[in-house]
Write a protein that binds this DNA or RNA. Structure first.
Length: 872
RNA sequence: GGGCGCUUAGCUCAGUUGGUUAGAGCGCAGCCUUCACACGGCUGAGGUCGGAGGUUCGAGUCCUCUAGCGCCCA
């Protein structure tokens, strides 16, 4: 034996003199990889498989303690099911698709994508990002994305391996890789062929900086200052005017109607009449709609195309005309006043006014039009400042505009009832998380826009024919052949065409857009499970068992995955969803990188050890936000150390120098004290099993840990002298058999939480991996499963009373400021007869542990323990 | 404004269908160099369960109202 024997993989290799935790992560993760401990058994039938739809982390994001937290939860569950004999399908995905990667590449290399540039095969990014970004072609840009994400993925994998995730590393995928692209495109083509996806030019939420459409799920409201501007609209064919209030006066040229509530007496006479817009002289109707709020502003509002989402509703439901003035760059578009659609009473005046606005941003245009309206006298009074919620893209910096553009939509609104039913069918952990899904589905207002006008994403496998006039015919998309997937319509050619015909009359053009990131990640079960590409694998893992994820993406990732599975397979994608909470900083605020209080995980693992960090994570109950607490990691480390030392003691008693094979049978357990301990452990096994089955790793840990500390503090002390015995008498045999059984069970109970230290100890006396060992049962503790958790009260009392009296003896010694080894001349215990009987059967253990010379007992109503210490 | 969750010792949290003096860990204080463990052991002091009302023989545990915190959505 040497001092440096941690890890290394040789099983049954004996007990080190001075066990430690250093180096366990590196040694055992290498051994697991070499042994294939976590390899998925592809021969297992579906019923024997436990399949996990692992969340693919965004690799372009920073590593966060929150990752460690939630991924540890999933890993404990994976390990439990593996020990229960399931073939665990535990893949790892990398989400390297989409905007976050694009932005990181732009900043990291100092480049920007210009899709009009040709590919430069010799391009090398600057060594230092220049101040002025270098324009590169789309293929060059994408290559840089791949280069950087590959690096990021290695960093993540290293962290996961160090943390001890029992992932099968041969089962990895990336959301931008060929397989994911193929699955995404195939999924799209299937939707298209079934008519479940459609293309429409429609008002679209638009981020003018990212120049992309944004879906409902990506919106957030932010409170922003604004001002009500009171404008007067002259009536047509009647005296007087109508006063409205608006926060968007720059959209006056886009005004298509005024609207008030149908029951609003003030405006009822106006419904059906017309007014003209100030400055532009456009005749617009006055209409009624329930969404008009009589309390807001003057009670009557102008409808513009489009100022906000309510405008869209009014425009659609009231069948209004369209006058678009805001372009995709957020600036006002040129308008030909007097032309069709832009009819006006005063074309010259409108043109003059608009000439001051065209080309300006909405903010600049607002400033200018206020001046114009002031000069013309149409603006009444001073603008009235307010604060109101404005819609933003969650990653954006300027308010969203609403523009008309051509987008692909997945039909979700007609699915609402089926989606609600699936939400009820899914088992949620914790159950109340189901509300979030239901509320989202019930609140859906539009189909799912899956088009994004970006570059690093999965392209739509679609081209459009170009007519003789050179115009693309978007109504007749040419779909790719499934066998050819993945395709990039910007470089690949549709069936029946030649590359030379690209963009020419009679030729074709590719769809320039890429899919929303959720359009790809909604297919993670299909991507990881090998849908169509590997039908044998897919049949063994789908529908999967578990989707673990965070609660803030229930409305996006979880929802979208349910949608795709429902449309493609007519089933749930998994049976269970385990929703993890947040990591909060010690001030109970959500940790976020914007606050700069992010704790990077790897140094924590290096400081405290992976088991200790996992211990902290596993203390966070499912769905519950948990404070970041290094103190808990210290506790976890102490637990791991205790496991080493207690194991060393127990195994040292078992072997008598014999070796790994010397494991006495549980039938040798005869002493009541030993049976009481095993009885309690059987209850713990039962509770931990039930808890893990319900995905409650935290409860499993809590019960196991509580038992383990009491086991060390009381039972080990009480049994020590027998365990040190020669081994000839039955008492010693009983103690050793009980210790062996308890240790074996405890290591396996702790293995999902503390995989490294349990594997280390297991290797001292057992062959193979503890993580491949069977999950413990009450049966192997000599306790028939059907008697759990009903303990035999008389037996259990032995341990209870013995531990209690031992505590009294300790207290007396502490009070007397004496060592625990101090001799007790006489110990007098007064208690109920049954309890004294129980104590009697552990008398020799108690006296040995407490160094008690003489035990005197009296039956009495007032329990007491009098300790007379021997002279020093 | 709507929905969900939380509020128990200084801190972080348990408390499963309502039932004897409300539990744990950390921290704190004191004691013990004990032959598995000083990366230790032992012992102890700390709450009446956010507030108000109600149901009940009995409530932290059920109901109503209320305050505060957090998240999601409008």
């Amino acid at each position: 034996m040497s001092e440096q024997t941690n890890g290394g993989g040789a099983a049954g290799r004996g007990i080190p003199d001075k066990p430690g935790l250093e180096g366990l992560e590196a040694a055992w993760s290498a051994w697991w990889e070499a042994e294939g401990t976590y390899a998925f058994d592809r021969g297992a039938p579906r019923g024997q498989v436990f399949a996990i739809d692992t969340p693919p982390p965004t690799v372009s994001g920073s590593l966060h303690i929150g990752h460690v937290f939630s991924y540890t939860h999933t890993d404990t569950v994976a390990r439990f099911h593996r020990m229960r004999g399931k073939a665990v399908f535990y893949p790892m995905g990398w989400d390297d698709n989409g905007l976050p990667t694009e932005r990181r590449v732009q900043n990291h290399f100092g480049v920007r994508c210009d899709p009009h540039l040709p590919y430069d095969p010799d391009f090398v990014p600057p060594s230092e990002p220049p101040k002025q970004p270098v324009a590169v072609s789309r293929p060059n840009f994408v290559a840089l994305c791949h280069q950087l994400t590959a690096q990021d993925e290695q960093v993540f994998e290293r962290l996961w391996r160090t943390l001890g995730l029992s992932v099968d590393w041969s089962q990895t995928y990336a959301t931008i890789a060929e397989r994911a692209q193929r699955v995404s495109q195939r999924g799209f083509l299937r939707l298209a062929r079934r008519g479940q996806v459609y293309q429409r030019t429609a008002p679209t939420l638009w981020d003018v900086d990212f120049r992309t459409a944004v879906s409902q799920a990506e919106l957030e409201d932010r409170e922003r200052p604004g001002a009500y501007h009171r404008l007067r609209f002259p009536r047509v064919g009647a005296p007087g005017g109508v006063e409205i209030e608006t926060t968007r006066p720059e959209l006056l040229p886009a005004c298509v109607a005024l609207v008030a509530h149908p029951d609003d007496e003030r405006f009822r006479p106006l419904f059906g009449t017309e007014v003209t817009t100030p400055l532009f002289g456009v005749r617009v109707p006055v209409v009624a709609h329930e969404l008009a709020d009589p309390e807001k502003g003057s009670g009557i509002a102008m409808i513009c195309t489009f100022g906000d989402t309510t405008d869209v509703v009014w425009w659609r439901e009231l069948g209004l005309t369209t006058r678009t003035v805001v372009g995709r760059d957020g600036r006002l578009l040129p308008v030909e006043w007097g032309a069709a659609g832009w009819e006006t009473e005063t074309p010259d005046r409108a043109a003059t006014a608009y000439a001051d606005l065209v080309g300006r941003t909405v903010v600049q245009a607002q400033r200018r039009i206020v001046e114009l309206l002031t000069d013309s006298g149409d603006l009444l009074g001073e603008p009235r400042p307010i604060t109101h919620p404005v819609k933003f893209y969650e990653k954006g910096e300027r308010p969203l505009e609403i523009v008309s553009s051509r987008q692909w939509f997945v039909e979700t609104l007609p699915l609402r009832d089926r989606l609600l039913a699936r939400g009820q069918e899914l088992r949620w952990h914790p159950p109340y998380m189901a509300h979030r899904y239901r509320a989202w589905v019930e609140g859906l207002t539009s189909d799912w826009n899956i088009s994004r006008q970006r570059f690093f994403g999965v392209p739509f496998p679609v081209w459009y024919p170009v007519d003789g006039a050179g115009e693309a015919d978007y109504g007749a998309p040419i779909l790719a052949d499934e066998a050819a997937l993945p395709v990039d319509p910007s470089t690949d050619v549709p069936p029946g065409y030649a590359e030379a015909q690209r963009g020419t009359p009679g030729g074709f053009v590719g769809d320039p857009d890429v899919m929303d990131t959720w359009a790809t990640s909604s297919l993670t079960p299909q991507i990881a499970g090998g849908w169509e590409d590997d039908p044998d694998l897919f049949s063994r893992v789908f529908p999967m068992d578990l989707r673990p994820q965070a609660h803030e993406i229930i409305r996006t990732w979880l929802f979208a995955t349910v949608v795709r599975s429902e449309l493609e397979h007519g089933s749930l994608p998994w049976t269970d969803a385990a929703i993890s909470g947040w990591v909060l900083d010690p001030d109970r605020k959500k940790m976020s990188k914007s606050k700069g209080d992010v704790v990077t995980p790897l140094p924590l693992i290096e400081t405290h050890g992976a088991d200790a960090v996992r211990y902290w994570a596993a203390g966070g109950r499912p769905g519950t936000d948990t404070a970041f607490d290094e103190g808990q990691m210290k506790v976890g480390r102490r637990l791991a150390t205790k496991v080493l030392n207690a194991s060393r003691f127990i195994l040292g008693r078992l072997t008598d120098g014999g070796g790994a094979g010397a494991v006495p049978p549980v039938e040798a357990v005869t002493a009541p004290l030993d049976r009481a301990m095993l009885g309690r452990l059987a209850v713990v096994v039962d509770e931990a099993t039930t808890a893990f089955e319900a995905y409650d790793y935290a409860r499993a840990l809590e019960r196991t840990e509580a038992f383990f500390w009491a086991f060390c503090d009381d039972y080990l002390e009480l049994v020590k002298s027998r365990a040190y015995g020669e081994g000839a008498d039955a008492g010693t045999a009983s103690a050793r058999a009980a210790l062996a059984a308890a240790l074996s069970v405890l290591l396996r109970l702790l293995a999902p939480i503390l995989p490294f230290v349990t594997e280390e100890v297991w290797s001292w006396w057992r062959d193979g991996s503890v993580h491949a060992a069977a999950w413990p049962t009450p049966d192997e503790l000599g306790v028939p499963p059907d008697t759990v958790p009903a303990l035999d009260p008389a037996t259990d009392l032995v341990l209870e009373v013995a531990a209690e009296v031992l505590g009294r003896v300790r207290r007396a010694k502490t009070t007397a400021r004496r060592s625990m080894r101090a001799e007790v001349a006489v110990l007098t215990v007064v208690d109920a007869a049954a309890r004294l009987d129980a104590l009697a059967s552990a008398e020799s253990d108690l006296c040995a542990a407490g160094h008690v010379h003489r035990l005197v007992t009296h039956v009495g109503d007032q329990p007491s323990a009098e300790v007379v210490l021997a002279a020093e």
